[in-house]
């Protein structure tokens, strides 16, 4: 809470509440056993901004996202969400996670629940909505992600693209202030990637603050305000979308970019 009492790195002036980024990651460290996975990562996401995080496999992108909503404890550094230091605040983890939606590579829809029920579960159990209200919310969101006709379908009856759109709707049902996407389209067949990215881009355009791990450069060009390049546990480049696609990025980022654009 009291970020003023914290010793911030000298390069960083303590942000006042009003203009503080929605999410501020400051020098996060994380090790699994002997291997250091995150080595002092810092990253800001401002309200309404969409930040795309790219980097080679194993560079620690998923780990960074998981630290943000406390699915993984950070070893060092601080995470501020809405100006409050949430680092290690596991007592309030459930409350914090309500405000942060997460979308996974493998969708992770609850297999025993229909599309609508997947969306209704958390609003009912966490926010205490009535079944009828939760159902209304679910139908609205399914319309938003353009699969209103699949409300009663079960996950195994949906295509990958449809499942991922339901998963996005499920996260949105909690009215999150921030959305985290971890390679949301990398498990999808090429013809389904588009429908998911379209939904995400629409959300970004509507002002949903998003942190997106993806290698879909088309999406980044379309929706990103800022692009962050990560390598070997470090953030090695943070650039505005214009600068990034204008070619003014450092050499390592450019090399990676050339690789994924083959």
């Amino acid at each position: 809470m009291n970020d003023t009492t914290r010793a911030d790195p000298p390069t960083r002036r303590p942000a006042t509440r009003a203009d503080a980024p929605l999410l501020e990651i400051v020098g996060i460290d994380k090790s699994f056993g002997q291997s250091r996975i995150l080595k002092g990562c810092s990253l800001d996401v401002r309200r309404g901004e969409t930040v795309v995080l790219i980097g080679p496999s194993g560079s620690g992108k998923s780990t960074l996202l998981r630290c943000v909503n406390l699915l993984e404890p950070a070893d060092g550094g601080d995470i501020f969400f809405e100006g409050a230091n949430i680092t290690g605040d596991f007592a309030n983890a459930a409350r914090i996670r309500r405000e942060i939606g997460m979308v996974f590579q493998n969708f992770e829809l609850f297999q025993h629940l229909s599309a609508a029920q997947n969306i209704m579960l958390a609003p009912m159990k966490v926010l205490g909505l009535s079944r009828a209200d939760a159902h209304d919310v679910a139908l609205d969101l399914l319309r938003k992600v353009r699969i209103s006709d699949k409300a009663d379908a079960f996950p195994d009856e949906l295509s990958g693209g449809q499942q991922q759109r339901v998963a996005i709707a499920r996260a949105l049902a909690m009215k999150p202030k921030l959305m985290l996407y971890d390679e949301p389209t990398s498990a999808l067949d090429p013809e389904m990637i588009r429908e998911v990215l379209d939904v995400m881009a629409d959300l970004s355009a509507e002002g949903m603050t998003s942190l997106v791990v993806t290698h879909e450069m088309g999406f980044a060009r379309r929706a990103a305000d800022k692009i962050v390049f990560m390598e070997d546990g470090r953030i090695v480049e943070t650039a505005s979308s214009e600068a990034f696609f204008g070619g003014s990025v450092n050499e390592r980022a450019q090399r990676f970019l050339d690789q994924i654009l083959h």
């Binding site: 699915l71 997460m102 579960l121 958390a122 159990k125």
Partner: peptide, 19 residues
């Protein structure tokens, strides 16, 4: 991943277990 998805929605550990 199913548990993780439940936790990420803000459910508690026991709610994840139960539901």
């Amino acid at each position: 991943g199913q548990r993780t998805a439940g936790l990420a929605l803000g459910l508690t550990t026991s709610q994840v277990m139960r539901f």
